[in-house]
Design a protein around this nucleic acid. Sequence first.
DNA 1: GTTGCTCTTTGACCCAGATCAAGCGCGGGG
DNA 2: CCCCGCGCTTGATCTGGGTCAAAGAGCAAC
Lengths: 217, 217
Amino acid sequence: MSQLEQIKYYRSFQAGQTVIWSGDRMEFVGSVVSGIATLTQTMEDGRRQMVGLLLPSDFVGRPGRPVAAFDVTATTDLVMCCFRKKPFEDLMTSTPHIAQRLLEMTLDELDAAREWMLLLGRKTAREKIASLISIIARREASLHMKRAKDMLSVDLPLTREEMADYLGLTLETVSRQISALKKDGVISLEGNRHVSIPDIDRLLEEAGDDSDGGMLV
Amino acid sequence: MSQLEQIKYYRSFQAGQTVIWSGDRMEFVGSVVSGIATLTQTMEDGRRQMVGLLLPSDFVGRPGRPVAAFDVTATTDLVMCCFRKKPFEDLMTSTPHIAQRLLEMTLDELDAAREWMLLLGRKTAREKIASLISIIARREASLHMKRAKDMLSVDLPLTREEMADYLGLTLETVSRQISALKKDGVISLEGNRHVSIPDIDRLLEEAGDDSDGGMLV
DNA sequence: GTTGCTCTTTGACCCAGATCAAGCGCGGGG
DNA sequence: CCCCGCGCTTGATCTGGGTCAAAGAGCAAC
């Protein structure tokens, strides 16, 4: 990786700032260092669908493709580690290991996208919300194993509207379903971003997931 | 590729036969030679979502993953060209070119999956049908350039129910929307599988696609 | 404190698409 | 030839989630 060290640089973005517009020439690839970014598509009439959520360590960009296919937006303050595209591609052809690692990551993303297709096409609003929370919880848990006793809790890194765009719902429906899950004791809220999960199995059941497949966002 | 020639073999499946069950050990990778296969997920209660449509030349399988994540089913009689997984993986590590080609294909599939997420999350039933027909038409056209004069026509390789599973609809809605598009002169039908498209731009407009992005299935 | 944001919740109503339920058309087998 | 089965269409009705509208809740600037 020492050759990569030589060509890398950092870029910072403020919350709300657009990193890349769909259709732009993409002169770099990189990965998220800190903060959260989203990958979205928008139709002419404004309908929007989030197609990916980029958390720290996630890769951005497509070696071999000149223009971006989706909008990338920072939803929190964001730091990215970037490599100019050309040198990165050269390095990739000369270092097979990198292409293989990238293939592995891309296959994981593809599986995640396909899991998401099931959610978008067939799950109810309640199941969608439960799925989103459990996925965020799983990622959080795998990162810093934060659990107070056996009570799992997470911060939702997205506004209600962003969740709606991710889940193929409206923000009102997201709000209503979160309220409903709270009323039914599946989750509890402190503020409107912090969620506690008294019983993770209950939540997974609400999500309609067949057992604990290794879905990742 | 001559090394690949040495380890390849063929498998045939009848229409309706399952190629691989989700969760099965996957002892081979391969690609479709002829016929059509689908990649589907099913929830315990039977709700089904198709997450991929495999046409000739499409790759099946995941180097580096022991079990299948989705059901693969032959919807027509199917011939696949297979490679036992272990030798293929060995070959991949020793032949960088293969990993790179595979990465390219996987990135294309990822883009297609993300396009499909927009369809599933945000498009209306009519737009979904129009999108499906235009995508099949585009693939057909790129394969054998079949067009009588300037009238494009395609055979739908799927039943109404399979289309419904692909689009996140019910088969009744699929049928109704196809009838509606026919009544409005956007398409015409001969039998219930063969579609003619008098005006491809009109169809693309109905699909809600922002211009002619290179979506592939 | 007040003003003015943005984000969120909640209510009332509506509609696209699901569900339930007949029928139709056509190809294969007796 | 008729019957049967399967894929498809069409109608009637229902409903989950969208739409429109109003109001609370933080919170930063003044």
